[in-house]
Computed example of a mutant assay.
Amino acid sequence: MIPKKKPVLTVRRAPGDRRRGILAAGPLRLRCALGRSGTTIFKREGDGATPVASMALLSAWHRPGRMVRPGARLAIRRIRADVDAWCDAADHAAYNRHVRLPFPASAERLARADRLYDFLVVLDWNIRQRTRGRGSAIFLHVAKPGYLPTEGCVAVSPSDMLRLAPFLALGARLTVRR
């Protein structure tokens, strides 16, 4: 099913656990992992919280050979091992941006040993209107087994990421509620 309007994905906290949520997209209701500190309206770098916000879906990254490429209607870039990373150094000019390795400041590698970034969607948290220290690398990505908490992202199972694909489109928004 391909939505006719620009999709809205809504995340709310699951009852009884502030580190887990329910992601709604059209008729889908999916389990998801949230930040280790739950959700916050005062997001800061390294706080482990998922921002309460409405964020545009900007683009996506896929690691070939690790997961079927979801049929998202976003620009999807290929993750290259030892090349692609995301700057999380709040004092660097490239803060909260894609960077190429080697990189002189702190940056998170997109090609990870685990499966978390086999497919990820870049959310517009602190990107278009960037403020140093307000948080970086807020993605929709693949969840850890058992839906263990994230560092501030929203994460779903690999199979649910494939089910979400028709809703992952340019102009779509992911809204995290309290």
Rank of each mutant, 00 (worst) to 15 (best):
R100V: 06
Y95K: 02
L168Y: 05
C153P: 01
L174T: 01
D114C: 01
L123M: 12
P166E: 07
S159Q: 14
D88V: 14
V142G: 06
L110S: 00
G133K: 00
A165G: 07
V121F: 05
G133L: 01
R128T: 13
N126T: 05
R80D: 05
D82W: 10
A107V: 08
D88R: 07
A93W: 10
D118P: 03
A105E: 12
L101P: 02
R134T: 00
T131C: 08
R134F: 10
G152L: 07
L101K: 08
P166F: 05
V156E: 03
G171Y: 05
F119H: 04
I138K: 00
R128S: 14
R97K: 10
N126K: 02
V142F: 02
D160F: 05
G146P: 03
G152P: 07
S157T: 12
E108H: 04
R80H: 13
A107M: 06
P166K: 08
T175D: 11
G152T: 07
A85F: 05
A93G: 09
C87L: 04
L170Q: 14
A85S: 08
D91E: 15
G152Q: 05
H98Y: 11
L148Y: 07
D82C: 05
S136N: 07
V156Y: 04
L148D: 10
A89S: 11
V142R: 01
A165K: 02
A172S: 14
L123S: 08
D88T: 13
R177S: 06
P104E: 05
W125K: 00
R177P: 00
Y117R: 04
C153R: 03
P145H: 07
S106H: 13
A81H: 11
F139C: 02
D82Q: 12
A90V: 08
